[in-house]
Write a protein that binds this DNA or RNA. Structure first.
Length: 357
DNA sequence: TTTATTTGACCCCA
DNA sequence: TGGGGTCAAATAAA
């Protein structure tokens, strides 16, 4: 009974993903200026819808497993603190402490190129508001605490912590906690209507002339790359993989970065994700999508090796590779091949000005 | 005036 | 008891 359900889900997942792939192909063929905007919008909507279905199915499956394991835990006589099962709806202001343990949490290491100019720091598609900063014992740099701006308006409990690495000041550790429950449609439209992302991206490329020829390819691939990468986001909590699909990969702390950390002053104000530093694309572009969960949000450093010539250190790579979570651990890790193929079969022109229009 | 950031104080937990 | 995380008043910026 349960098996047949799983088979059904698998088939549906494969069907939805295949459909998404076909739609993406169609969309690609409609990216000519002669093609109508409506057609493109429609196709885009259908693609997003497909992926949404997949995500919700995966989330549902995971939740079922979680609740099952919770039940079995109880049945085994283990004592589970009542705090850990307090629902968000019942929370009181002080319940934030009680929820700490239950909030999904994962860490991303992000390398940024400093020199943030008047344009201010990059955002990741979500609106974060800083609510605290703490000096951490043993750390040279303070840790910044951010929460979703929509905490009050929409009750979104997502938070993140940003801390500069001791060893490499250009490296930030971003720890996400909780998932976004807010709607980001407004942010999506902001990014869509704001050509700044394109500008920033071009600036990045401009500063990496050796990467210029790869620009189109890189830009085209990055969105799909994101999707693929999202299947293997670095996380501290194996149970929070689905959040990697909800969360964008990178968030830059709204706080200005101290000038003493500017080790690459010639670089643009774009934050460069570790590993993709020399790969010539900015996170802003990497997460065009980050403005809406419908898009392909993902961990950016995944598969950066594809582009070669990346100057991040071996140890950096090792660190990433040794992350607790890998694609192979992902329940949808098997899909990686499919997406991989899709990724490189298509030179998806995400850099098309109309794409985010 | 509104919104965001800073920062000291408070609370929880190991 | 001390460290980490959050609150909330004060302050700054838009």
């Amino acid at each position: 009974m349960e098996k047949s359900m799983e088979n059904f889900e698998q088939k549906t997942l494969i069907h939805e993903l295949s459909q998404g792939k076909e739609l993406a192909k169609k969309l690609m063929s409609h990216l000519h200026p002669s093609s109508s905007q409506e057609t493109r919008d429609l196709l885009l909507e259908q693609i997003l819808s497909s992926y949404e279905k997949v995500l919700s199915m995966l989330n549902h499956t995971k939740n079922m497993k979680e609740s099952n394991s919770l039940e079995s835990t109880h049945s085994l006589g283990h004592t589970t603190s009542p705090r850990s099962v307090i629902s968000d709806q019942q929370s009181t202001p002080r319940d934030v402490f009680k929820k700490r343990k239950t909030m999904p949490r994962w860490t991303e290491q992000v390398k940024v190129c400093l020199g943030t100019g008047p344009e201010g720091p990059l955002d990741d598609g979500y609106n974060w508001r800083k609510y605290g900063q703490k000096d951490i014992l043993g750390a040279n740099h303070p840790r910044g605490y951010y929460r979703c701006t929509h905490r009050n308006s929409q009750g979104c409990l997502a938070t993140k912590q940003v801390q500069k690495s001791d060893e490499d000041p250009s490296l930030f550790e971003v720890t996400y906690r909780g998932r976004h429950t807010c709607s980001r449609s407004s942010q999506l439209s902001n990014i869509a209507s704001n050509p700044q992302s394109q500008v920033k991206q071009e600036k990045t490329v401009h500063n990496f002339p050796q990467q210029q020829e790869e620009k189109n390819q890189t830009q085209s691939q990055s969105a799909l790359l994101n999707l693929k990468a999202g299947l293997g986001v670095k996380t501290e909590d194996l149970d929070t993989r689905e959040d990697s699909m909800i969360f964008p990969p990178f968030s830059f702390p709204p706080t200005p970065i101290e000038p003493d950390t500017v080790d690459t002053p010639f670089l643009p104000d774009a934050a460069i994700v570790e590993g993709s530093l020399a790969c010539g694309f900015s996170p802003r572009f990497l997460s065009p999508a980050t403005s809406d969960s419908n898009y392909f949000a993902a961990s950016p450093w995944h598969d950066f090796g594809t582009f070669g010539q990346c100057n991040s250190s071996e140890s950096d790579h090792a660190e990433i590779l040794s992350a607790p979570t890998s694609v192979t651990n992902s329940p949808i890790g098997d899909l990686d091949l499919t997406i991989d193929k899709l990724d490189f079969e298509l030179s998806f022109p995400f850099d098309s000005p109309e794409f985010f229009a």
